[in-house]
Each structure stands twice: as structure tokens, then as C-alpha cells.
Nucleic acid binder design. Structure first.
Lengths: 201, 201
DNA sequence: GTCTATACCACGATAGAC
DNA sequence: GTCTATCGTGGTATAGAC
């Protein structure tokens, strides 16, 4: 039953196991007994590390944001002065990397956030806002530089781009397909659309 | 506590109440006692109409697909021989209409499907595939007519478009904002992207 | 077709030994 | 830091009266 890093200390082992299970099964349908089993201990022992199940979820959601923010900042350093299309492509690839290549935390965040208990959501929202602000600033800079079409609504565009990227966890299989290709598709579609050249409105 | 169409027969009244609650709170966190209360009856009575909670969910998920398919077909009739950009815009608007304007079934479907119990998901998948096939055919026709850029991967593009539309239920408020504007943004972005003219790769 | 009453179980959480 | 044992609650589901 033990599935997670055997060397890790208790708290981290529990979080690894729980994030994985929350991602695969959802928060309410994952029991503390199951999490404890996957982390190699008994249910009662979890309470030495966390105050409650909600507390455990909160810790996981925050870690998911940390992973996303780190990915964003690494990408930003890589494209300090690149052309707009490349800036977008690099950041899309970084976000997808956070979702699929850096452990279950970001994916678990995306899956569980919106049905999380209200107190948990409220505790997490400020951190989420921090990540969204990074994207808002990125797109704002592009708009100011004249790289975006005049009728683009930045707020709506950012949200639909997030939607396109985040729902990939429902169908994309990172073992069988290329994440680079997915990133190219999403970034390209966001940037220039699918219409044949000459299709601009 | 009674919230739903008082005239409707028992089965439909239960489904209306349950779809609404599943959408707002999620499937596992909605109890049969709560559903029964909202439908104006007691928990035990539900079993006259449905075999189990999973059976009720299955019925709701199917109804959600029916609403989507109906909306698609109405849209298709409206744009029998329109230019490609208008075809896309009309179908995007129809899908968003199914999500926000034709009752809670389609939205409940999108919210609950991916964490539904495996037997329920398996029973529903064939019907979902039917709806996705409609979109696949639509985009396939556009590609054949030469309306899509040469490097567009239809399968991936369809999935990311779905992602952009469906995640709107997590943040879009149909009372406070214009669904037409949202549809324009999503369809326009899908079709021509956000880059300033001349940005084509 | 809806009610009451209840069986049975799994859950989150706590207490205290080790 | 983890264990065992257990409490209380609320869940789905069933049986049988009306």
C-alpha cells in the first residue's frame, strides 16, 4: 500500500499521498484511512501532523500554487526580452509543466479547488490571486507594447486560456503524448487562432 | 424548502432539485435527505423513482447531454450555409447557452462528470461521445473546405475549445455579465487569436 | 407515491498507551 | 511520532404501513 517517497518525513509523505489521491478520486471521496494507508501509517497518526482533513487540503492547495508560481518565474527569467509569441509559448509550456511534470500538487489544486469547503477556499484565494496577477501583468505588458489586437479583453482572455490549459488534466495523458505539442497547440491557438490566413475579422 | 417546479411529476422534481444541488455543492457532498427536502418529500421516497443515488446521477448526466445536443442541432439549423466564422460563433453561443440558460443539467454534467463513480462514468461515456462527434464533424467540414490553418490539429483544438467554454461555469456570472460578450470573446479567440494583425506565425 | 422507522456502515476526530 | 480503541454523527438504503 505504501506508494510515496519512503525517505520523506511524515508530513511530506502524507501530503504526497493525499495530493495524489485527491487528484485521482476527489477530496470528499478520499478517506483519511485511505490516505494514511498510502502514506504507511494509521488514520489517527495524521492528527499529529494536521489539525483536520480541511487543514491537510489547505496545505496541498498552497503547495500547488507554489509550484505554479515557481514555474512562472523560471519561465519569465528565460524570456526576459523575447518576441511576444515566444513569451506566451514559454509561459504556456511552464504552466502545463507545473500541471503534469512537477508532482500532483498543481493538478490536485485545479481538480479540488472549486468544490473545496468554503473556509478552505477563502484561505486559499489570496494566494491564487497572486498567481493570476502574474499573468495579468504579463498580458498587460503585451497590450501596452501593442502586441494584442485592439478588441481583446484581457481579463476574459486570461480566464479562457486558463480554462484551455487546466482542463487538459481531464484528458491529456502525459505518458502517451507530447506535452510540447500540447503547449504549441494551446499557445498557437491563443495567439493566432485556427482560421486559415486571411480569416481575421 | 420546496424550490422546484411544483407542478412537475415526482421524478422530474427530484431531478431538478438534485441537478441544482450537485452543481452548487458537488455530488458526494449532497445527501439524499437534502435532495428530498428540496423536492418536497422524504429521503425514503426517492427510492420509488430511482434505484440508487448513482442511478439518479446517471439520469441527470444524460439529461445534461440531451440539452447540449438539442442546442447544437438548433444552432446547426440556423447556420446551414453561413461563413465559417459565423458557424463557429453560433455553435459556441449555443454551447454556452446550454451551460447557462437551459437549466442546471448541462452545468451539473460538466461539474460532476469527471469525479463521478466509475460505473456511472462508463454508462455515460457513449452519450458524451455522441456530442463530441457532432463537433468533430463540424470542424472536419471546415478543414475540408480549407477554412482552417494547415497546422491545426482538430482533435486537440476541439478539446481546448471545450476547456475554454466549460470552465466558464467556475467564474462566469450569467446575472451580472453578458453571455453574448463571453461567446464573442471565446469564438473570436478560437478563430483568430489575440495577437495584433500581422502576428501570424 | 409518500410516509415512518430503522439497519448498517464509514466517516472524521479524540484519548491515552507506548 | 505512531499505535489501538472508540465516540458520535450522518450517510445510503430497506421494509412495511398508509
Amino acid at each position: 500500500m505504501k506508494v510515496t517517497t519512503p525517505g520523506a518525513d511524515g508530513r511530506q509523505r502524507i501530503m504526497d499521498a493525499a495530493a495524489e489521491l485527491f487528484l485521482r478520486q476527489g477530496y470528499p471521496e478520499t478517506s483519511l484511512r485511505h490516505i494514511a494507508g498510502a502514506a504507511g501509517m494509521k488514520a489517527g497518526s495524521l492528527y499529529y501532523h494536521f489539525d483536520s482533513k480541511d487543514d491537510l487540503l489547505t496545505a496541498i492547495l498552497r503547495q500547488g500554487i507554489t509550484v505554479m508560481v515557481d514555474a512562472f518565474e523560471a519561465a519569465a527569467a528565460d524570456v526576459a526580452s523575447a518576441p511576444p509569441a515566444e513569451v506566451i509559448a514559454t509561459h504556456v509550456r511552464a504552466h502545463l509543466g507545473a500541471l503534469f511534470e512537477h508532482g500532483p500538487y498543481t493538478a490536485a489544486h485545479v481538480i479540488t479547488f472549486h468544490t473545496a469547503p468554503a473556509p478552505v477556499r477563502e484561505a486559499i484565494v489570496p494566494f491564487r490571486d497572486g498567481y493570476e496577477a502574474l499573468w495579468a501583468a504579463l498580458l498587460g505588458d503585451l497590450a501596452e507594447a501593442g502586441a494584442l489586437a485592439g478588441d481583446v479583453k484581457i481579463g476574459l482572455s486570461r480566464l479562457t486560456l486558463f480554462g484551455a490549459m487546466n482542463t487538459a488534466i481531464e484528458w491529456f495523458d502525459v505518458e502517451r503524448s507530447s506535452l510540447d505539442e500540447l503547449a504549441d497547440t494551446i499557445a498557437g491557438q491563443f495567439w493566432t487562432g485556427v482560421a486559415a490566413s486571411g480569416g481575421r475579422r
